[in-house]
């Protein structure tokens, strides 16, 4: 499977996750977000880059609990809440935000 962004064909898995993070750029993120009916704002980008930092540090995509805790640690308790992330990336923040950030699907994500 693949998606097309700026006339470039990018391989994705059966759930629409990018096969290679190397192919990710902001246009790709915007395109994937649109498919999820999300218009990316500064608040979204903050979480997207945060997720990529998590992936760089731990080499896994965080499940919801880990994403909340990591957000709390890096951005403070106001943003480190399920409800905040849910408003940005409904209906499943860990899954949707990972997809937009070009990361693999989080394992063990309910």
């Amino acid at each position: 499977m693949h998606i097309i962004v700026n006339n470039q064909q990018l391989a994705v898995d059966k759930d629409g996750y990018l096969e290679s993070l190397q192919q990710w750029n902001t246009d790709v993120a915007t395109e994937i977000a649109q498919n999820e009916n999300i218009q990316l704002s500064a608040a979204h980008w903050e979480i997207i880059y945060l997720l990529q930092d998590f992936y760089k540090e731990f080499e896994i995509s965080p499940a919801m609990r880990a994403l909340v805790k990591y957000t709390e640690k890096k951005l403070g308790p106001e943003k480190g809440k399920s409800i905040y992330l849910l408003q940005l990336f409904p209906p499943s923040p860990a899954k949707i935000a990972s997809k937009i950030a070009g990361l693999p699907r989080p394992a063990n994500c309910l």
Partner: peptide
């Protein structure tokens, strides 16, 4: 492969 140093460092974020 993915590094266990990295992956296991994530354990605190899963409580």
């Amino acid at each position: 492969q993915k590094s266990f140093t990295s992956m296991l460092s994530a354990l605190p974020f899963y409580d």
